Computed example of a mutant assay.
Amino acid sequence: MPDKYILKRWKKTAKSGLVSDANGNETKNSADPGLLIKWSTMSRLASDVVEDALMSEEGCELLSETLKSLQVKLKLLKDGPSNNKVGGSSSQTQYMKDPKRVRYKGRPKRVTGAKEKAMKQGIRHCQECGHIGHDRRQCPRNLNTP
């Protein structure tokens, strides 16, 4: 069978080459070797910078300020110039609300039976004599006749 018909998730190597971000989430296109090299290089560089900054209090403050400004610049780079808002700052965070719940389609949860429907309609009466308390099968008129 040609390899193009076998999906990656079915192979033994499906989990090889996974790359995770700071939150532990897997990044997209993690099987790309170029991305793995970039990730490894950046992680090593960031780790070295953090180790150097931890040696002094001023170094920690400098690194913190630099990383915050770098994060803002990267966010603007990621969003691009087309997403700038008119009259507002781009650093404001907007949260999306959960979607409204939709009623389920299909039949109702409980189907009422014929007896229950008849009970809702009112008191039953005999079709032969019209009295209440019995039906046509148990009517005294029919029981008296041979």
Rank of each mutant, 00 (worst) to 15 (best):
E116N: 00
D135F: 07
N25D: 13
E128T: 13
L76Q: 12
L62Y: 09
E61W: 01
T27P: 05
G24H: 01
C129T: 01
D98E: 15
P140D: 01
T145L: 14
V72E: 13
Q121W: 10
K38D: 11
S90L: 08
V86P: 06
M119W: 10
G133S: 00
M1W: 08
H125L: 03
R110C: 05
V111L: 11
S90G: 08
K12N: 12
K117Y: 08
T13P: 00
P99F: 04
S90N: 14
D79N: 13
Q71G: 14
I123G: 02
E57F: 04
V102R: 10
G87P: 01
V49E: 14
L70S: 07
Q71A: 12
G80E: 02
G113P: 06
Q92C: 08
N25Q: 05
E61S: 04
L67W: 03
G130F: 01
S40M: 07
K68F: 09
A46T: 00
S16K: 15
S47L: 08
S56N: 04
R107D: 05
A114E: 12
E65H: 03
K73V: 08
C129V: 00
G17K: 02
S82K: 14
H131L: 11
E57A: 02
A53S: 01
Y5T: 08
S43T: 05
E58H: 04
L70A: 13
Q121S: 15
P146F: 12
V102A: 06
L35I: 07
V72Y: 08
M1H: 13
L45I: 11
Q127S: 14
R124I: 06
K85S: 11
L143C: 06
S40R: 03
R9K: 15
W10V: 05
S16P: 02
A22T: 11
S91R: 04
G113A: 04
L36I: 10
Q121V: 07
R124W: 09
H134K: 00
L77F: 12
P146S: 15
V72P: 01
D32K: 03
E61N: 04
S69K: 14
S20G: 07
H134R: 03
E116P: 00
Y104P: 08
G24S: 00
E65I: 03
P2G: 06
V50T: 05
T93W: 07
K75N: 10
G130S: 00
E61P: 01
L76R: 11
K73G: 11
R44T: 06
V49Q: 11
G130Y: 03
S82H: 15
G59R: 03
L36M: 10
M1A: 07
Q92F: 12
K68R: 01
Y104M: 12
W39A: 15
R124D: 09
M42G: 06
R44L: 09
V111G: 07
